[in-house]
Design a protein around this nucleic acid. Sequence first.
DNA 1: GTAGAAGTTGAAGTCAACTTCAAGTCAAGA
DNA 2: TCTTGACTTGAAGTTGACTTCAACTTCTAC
Lengths: 142, 142
Amino acid sequence: MDIAEVAKRSGIPASTLRFYEKKGLIVSLSQQGTRRWFGPGILDQLALISLGQAAGLSLDEIRSMFSPDGTPNIDRQLLATKADEIDALIKRLEAMSKGLRHAAACPAPSHLECPTFKRLLKAASSGVIERRWNKATPKPDL
Amino acid sequence: MDIAEVAKRSGIPASTLRFYEKKGLIVSLSQQGTRRWFGPGILDQLALISLGQAAGLSLDEIRSMFSPDGTPNIDRQLLATKADEIDALIKRLEAMSKGLRHAAACPAPSHLECPTFKRLLKAASSGVIERRWNKATPKPDL
DNA sequence: GTAGAAGTTGAAGTCAACTTCAAGTCAAGA
DNA sequence: TCTTGACTTGAAGTTGACTTCAACTTCTAC
């Protein structure tokens, strides 16, 4: 597949594919100056990258977990640790979703008067809810 | 409260508070050049901002949830939509976590060739995988 | 064989959310 | 009063993930 085909099939812009290759996240068969050629496995790799991003991993973290040819990193401990982190994130997101749904449905005239919402606020201000998307873990396009 | 007190109580750096004020997210009682003075309500407002951020809202979106006078004016539809988005993210994260755990345990030489991993990958990417700052990405053919 | 669409490169630009800096101001304690 | 330290400002810098640009080169079609 050439870059246009990969872009079309994956929905990822050609510029991003070139960027990923320069970053070392993916590899292509090509000599300097000639056109890139990607094997069919590229689509799975890109899916994996997108998945990692959705999980809040940086591109550098993703690269550290998977070699550009798609082989996983030997560091199984790292993978398990990341899985734990994701599970913790899931728990917080579940609480967040619940709170949001309540706030959206709550009949209280102002959310500052709604007990459930106030509880959420309290949790947020007491640091129970972490500020997720800082520079280390950039905010995904929710 | 002066800015140092607010910073201390909220855990948000003074520089960020100034930044928020310039952005129009919070207000202080002060004339140009003099020291800022914040009312006690600022802590709830900051909690609300942190909450919104944790929910994946941008600062601009959060600002739109306040009336010009600072009274919260929460868009219930937006909250419900955000909750839906978070739920969708949770589903993908669950697949990601499972995938990572499997990758950490699976003896297959390449996980992209492991049927279990591929199945999880497919499940995870079956929804549209969103990437950051990307406007109008064409829908993948996959 | 030539036009033009699409590819190549490195460098620079963008965007959000901050942080840091330089230069100056103010306020409380010795 | 003088020093010290926290505050003020606008401007510039940072970070991660891209996107856009300029200046080519190379396929593909006619």
